[in-house]
């Protein structure tokens, strides 16, 4: 299953990439995908799937664009 993962802000330096197409080893939730790309799970994040907010337990599907971001507060 292929998904595109986009990291935002400081997560780029934590995950070691900005945007990458990934072949996943199996079905994953949004939270599991975040851990898979080595984002510190203690860090509060917001995950979107295809432009819409995703809950941690939402299952990622083939072809999805998943964006994982630090939680911003609008400056």
């Amino acid at each position: 299953m292929k998904v595109t993962v986009k990291l935002i802000g400081p997560l780029i330096y934590e995950g070691g990439f900005s945007e990458r197409e990934l072949e996943l080893p199996g079905p994953m939730t949004a939270a599991e995908l975040s851990a898979y790309v080595k984002i510190d799970q203690k860090r509060p994040t917001i995950i979107t799937r295809n432009g819409k907010a995703a809950a941690p337990a939402d299952v990622v599907k083939d072809g999805d664009r998943v964006v994982i971001s630090h939680i911003y507060s609008g400056g």
Binding site: K6, I8, T48, S69
Partner: peptide, 19 residues
């Protein structure tokens, strides 16, 4: 947090992703 690496502009990419 690494916030200062991109400062407030980190939110630009996110705003673009979430319309």
């Amino acid at each position: 947090s690494g916030w200062s690496k991109q400062s407030t502009d980190a939110v630009l990419g996110w705003c673009n992703e979430v319309n």
